[in-house]
């Protein structure tokens, strides 16, 4: 078990964002968390990463309790995230962006190796390495965001709405990349509004509503569930 989450509760002031959320992720799995806007998907990722602190509950990564640990601890244990809206460093070059992904103690010594791997995965980034990141297209920026995350040598990657604002052709490309990363042995948590595609990809999926997990199952199971089809797929 790479990640175990137990009864997680998160509040922003008085507003409850997560309500007794529990689930577990197996090593090498690709799980999807789907739900509408404001269901608590991003909050869940932020809580696991340590950007926000839960009021109660437990998060364990490979058996170690990481509840409330800041990101510089969690990242260094091997939890990476590709944040919503890409969040690349716009006025720095592609190369500098990548180098900044490798500032963690766990990744520092392997910088050259990591860069070679990222360039192999995204040859486009190698071509653009001296370009100022903010001047690249949305798709290229998304590649850079993923590449920068990989520079930290994560074992678990959490993607927060990676398809947001990408052209449909690029979305296909993106999901292929995510699947390829998963096949290389990375455990992946995928948070998406693009329910159909993420359920096809996922070995296991959870549906969040109002901060609560209301449904879970394997990807195909949920895809064929009438409630999901009605609420999220509009069929």
């Amino acid at each position: 078990m790479i990640l175990e989450i137990e009864n997680l509760e998160l509040y922003y002031g008085d507003a409850q964002a997560l309500d007794r959320v529990s689930f577990a992720v197996e090593e090498g799995e690709l799980i999807a968390i789907v739900g509408a806007n404001g269901a608590g998907k991003s909050s869940l990722i932020h809580t696991i990463a340590g950007i926000v602190t839960p009021r109660s509950g437990r998060i364990r990564f490979r058996g170690t309790d990481i509840t409330g640990q800041p990101t510089h601890i969690t990242c260094n244990l091997g939890i990476g995230q590709v944040a919503e809206g890409r969040q690349i460093f716009p006025s720095l070059t592609v190369m500098e962006n990548l180098e900044m992904g490798a500032l963690l103690p766990r990744a520092r010594g392997k910088m050259r190796e990591s860069i070679a791997q990222v360039f192999e995965l995204f040859p486009r980034l190698a071509e653009r390495k001296s370009q100022i990141a903010g001047t690249m297209s949305g798709g290229e920026q998304q590649m850079l965001a993923i590449g920068r995350c990989l520079m930290g040598r994560p074992e678990l990657i959490m993607f927060d709405e990676p398809s947001l604002g990408l052209a449909p052709a690029l979305v296909q490309e993106l999901f292929k990349t995510i699947r390829a990363l998963n096949r290389r042995g990375l455990t992946i948590i995928l948070v998406e509004q693009n329910v159909a595609v993420s359920l096809k990809l996922a070995s296991h999926a959870y549906v969040l509503e109002n901060g609560r997990i209301v449904m879970s199952g394997s990807g195909p199971e949920l895809l064929n569930d009438d409630r999901i089809r009605n609420a999220y797929l509009g069929i």
């Binding site: 950007i51 990101t71 510089h72 990242c75 944040a83 969040q87 460093f89 500032l103 963690l104 930290g152």
Partner: peptide
């Protein structure tokens, strides 16, 4: 450049 992104990368 982006403090939130820096934190997400594990920078203290």
């Amino acid at each position: 450049e982006d403090e939130e992104a820096a934190r997400a990368l594990g920078i203290n």
